[in-house]
Amino acid sequence: MNKPLGISRAIALLGVPLVLLITFTHYPLLQSVVSSFWSKGTKIRPSKFIGLDNYAKLFDDPVLAKVMWNSLIYAAVTIPVTVALSIAMALLVNSKLPGRALMRLSFFLPTMLPMIAVANLWLFVYVPGYGLIAQVMIWLGLPDINFLGSSETALWAMMVVAVWKEAGLFMIFYLAALQSIPQNLKEAAVLEGAGKARVFRDIVWPLLAPTTVFVAINAMLNAFRVIDHVVAMTNGGPNNASALLLFYIYQVAFGFRDFPYGATLTVLLAGILGLFAIVQFKLLDRRTHYQ
């Protein structure tokens, strides 16, 4: 092992994979930085160097302010809710309750479906007058609400869909972690008089910490990069009420054909993700020292 890597071996082993990675990850990242300094070209006026103008534009773009706020709420709500629900699901599936197999199936199935299919299912749940929720509301004698069509509820409707799809996947990771907790630890705590809540707080929860960090990082990445449901269900509307940052990038680049401003927004998103990654690695570091 650990033989020196000659040039021909290096090319044979690393050549193609690295060329592909660089072409579709590092090059476009650099290209985004470069084109963020240029203006949008038209047929008459070619694209020209404008320095930091695109970045200045970020600060007085009302749509961006709205979209950033939406993304922040979306991440701040979906991440903890997904973590809490996936732990609850894992505890239920791991318990001795009847119907565990059915529960596991019901929780896990949504993660198998494409987001676009999930979006279709939920469109049908939300349709006013006729969907699942509307029928329950009518049956209860409550007013019918157009969840996707009103700006107060559209973003929340998106969050419900995201949590519904993702919690089951993270449940699997918690299930694995729960099953690796030594039974005698819990038994010892119970013998000393600890109740269930106490056992969970002082034994189970701390031992789940590495899984929680892993799940939180993935939930965070998904919060910023999965927008299929937004495209399929509301197209960001009404009035950008359900538009997320990546959706706005998609709209600017492919709807308005403004690639330079789209590139500027891409740099912003990459920066946000990078920042989160650094913070989370620091947290992860502290956890390992703690142990």
């Binding site: 072409t23 990850t25 476009p28 990242l29 690639f259 891409t266 998103l269 990459a270 990078g274």
Partner: peptide, 24 residues
């Protein structure tokens, strides 16, 4: 450094780079 460079793709996944990748 090479491994670190590769790991960048774990964070900046292709979905985020749809604009420039479309041009490529």
């Amino acid at each position: 450094p090479l491994f670190a460079l590769i790991m960048v793709q774990m964070l900046i996944t292709p979905e985020i780079l749809i604009g420039p990748n479309y041009l490529t």
